[in-house]
C-alpha cells in the first residue's frame, strides 16, 4: 500500500493504535503558540498550527544529553544511555522534516554520531502537509519545503472529510496495514488529492525577491555587505534565533558530577554561535567578537556553507527565527536586502 485514505472521524482510533509502537509527541497549543509535547489523546493536538516554539529536534538532538558515563578513580568509562526508546513524531510539518533531513546528513557525516543515530533509528515520523501558509513569516516555498519531499514514514494530506496517507517506509506500512478503517486509495481519491495539492500550490510563492540560485550568488558576494552591520546593530544577542532553528546543531560538552565527586556524566548541551563566548578561547581571544559577524555566520550556515559542503540549504523556511526575534530581524527581509545590495 503506497497511498491510503482515512476518514477524519477514524483518526482517534488510528492514533490509539499507534500508542503501542511508542510514545507519541505532537503539536499542542500553548497560550497563543504551539509546542511539541507527549500526547495521550488525539484531541489534545492541534493539527493546524504555526511552527512550534522549538522544533521536534529536541527529541532526536535534545537540549541536554549524556554522551558518556565515567568514574575518576579508578578510571572507568561506560555507555551513558543503555537503551533508546521507540517514539512517534505526529503531525510534523514538511519544513521540520527538512530539518530532520539536514541533521541526518550532519550526524551521519564521518565520524558519525552514535547518540543521534541511535535515536533516529527509534524515530517514526508522521508528517502533515500544510495546505496554506501558517503565517507571514514562513519562507518554505523559496527553499522548496512547502511540499513533502521524503524524510517521513507517513504523510497526511487534508482532503476535507478525510486524510490522504502517503506511506513512505516499511515502518509506515506497519502502522497503516490491517486497519479496517484505512483503505487503499482509488482513482477518485487520487484525483481529489491532486486537485487539493494543485490548489494549494497556487497559494504559495517564492518569498524572496529573486530565485534561490540568485540568493546563493548573493551570499557568494555578500560577505562584506553592509547588511550584516545593520543586522548586527539591531541584534540584542538573546540567541533565540539559534535556539529555535531546526538545523542549528552546535553544542558544548561539559562534565556533571554526582555528589560523591567521583562518578559523573559527560553531557552535551545546545550552544549557539550568537553566544558571547562561543568562539572565545581560554586565553581570552575571541575569534568572532561582533554581533554583526555572529549574525552573518548564522545566515551563512543556512545559505552558503552547507550548500558547499552537502549541497543542501540549511534554512528550512520554517520562519521560527523571524517569529522569535525580539528585535524583529526578519530572515526574508535580510535575504532580500542582501539581494538588493548586490543588484
Amino acid at each position: 500500500m503506497k497511498y491510503a485514505i482515512i476518514a477524519k472521524k477514524d483518526m482517534p482510533r488510528w492514533f490509539d493504535s499507534l500508542k503501542r509502537h511508542g510514545k507519541i509527541f505532537g503539536p499542542r497549543k500553548k497560550e497563543h503558540q504551539y509546542v511539541f509535547r507527549p500526547i495521550d489523546e488525539f484531541e489534545e493536538m492541534s493539527l493546524v498550527y504555526i511552527p512550534t516554539i522549538l522544533p521536534p529536534k529536541k527529541y532526536y538532538f535534545p537540549q541536554k544529553e549524556a554522551l558518556l558515563k565515567f568514574s575518576i578513580d579508578p578510571y572507568k568509562t561506560d555507555k551513558a544511555i543503555k537503551e533508546f526508546e521507540e517514539y512517534i513524531l505526529f503531525a510534523v510539518h514538511t519544513c521540520d522534516i527538512a530539518g530532520i533531513q539536514c541533521l541526518d546528513v550532519v550526524f551521519n557525516d564521518n565520524p558519525a554520531d552514535p547518540n543521534y543515530l541511535n535515536r533516529k533509528e527509534k524515530t517514526t515520523v508522521i508528517g502533515i502537509e500544510c495546505m496554506d501558509y501558517c503565517d507571514s513569516h514562513a519562507s518554505c516555498a523559496a527553499v522548496g519545503n512547502h511540499v513533502p519531499r521524503g524524510g517521513y514514514d507517513i504523510m497526511l494530506t487534508d482532503l476535507d472529510g478525510s486524510y490522504a496517507m502517503h506511506i513512505n517506509s516499511e515502518k509506515g506500512e506497519k502502522l497503516a496495514v490491517g486497519k479496517s478503517y484505512i483503505r487503499e486509495m482509488n482513482a477518485t481519491d487520487r484525483a481529489r488529492l491532486k486537485k487539493a495539492q494543485d490548489e494549494k500550490l497556487k497559494k504559495f510563492h517564492n518569498e524572496f525577491s529573486k530565485d534561490i540560485k540568485s540568493v546563493e550568488r548573493a551570499f557568494d558576494d555578500g560577505f562584506f555587505s553592509p547588511v550584516w552591520q545593520d543586522v548586527g546593530r539591531r541584534c540584542v544577542g538573546c540567541t533565540n534565533c539559534t535556539a529555535v532553528c531546526p538545523t542549528c546543531y552546535c553544542f558544548d560538552i561539559a562534565d556533571e558530577m554526582e555528589m560523591n565527586l567521583n562518578d559523573g556524566v559527560r553531557t552535551r548541551t545546545w550552544s549557539y554561535c550568537q553566544m558571547d563566548d562561543f568562539a572565545k578561547v581560554a586565553t581570552g581571544e575571541d575569534f568572532r567578537p561582533g554581533r554583526d559577524g555572529r549574525q552573518r555566520h548564522r545566515y551563512y550556515r543556512k545559505f552558503k556553507y552547507p550548500v558547499t559542503k552537502y549541497n543542501k540549504y540549511f534554512c528550512t523556511g520554517c520562519g521560527r527565527c523571524t517569529r522569535t526575534c525580539m528585535a524583529k530581524i526578519s530572515l526574508v527581509e535580510t535575504v532580500n536586502a542582501l539581494l538588493d545590495n548586490k543588484a
Partner: peptide
C-alpha cells in the same frame, strides 16, 4: 591556528572559520 575546539569531530561548531 588556535581556535576553540570542543568535539574535534567537525560537529560542535566552535572552531569554524567561514565554512
Amino acid at each position: 591556528l588556535e581556535r576553540k575546539m570542543k568535539c574535534g569531530l567537525g560537529k560542535c561548531g566552535h572552531c569554524q572559520i567561514r565554512g
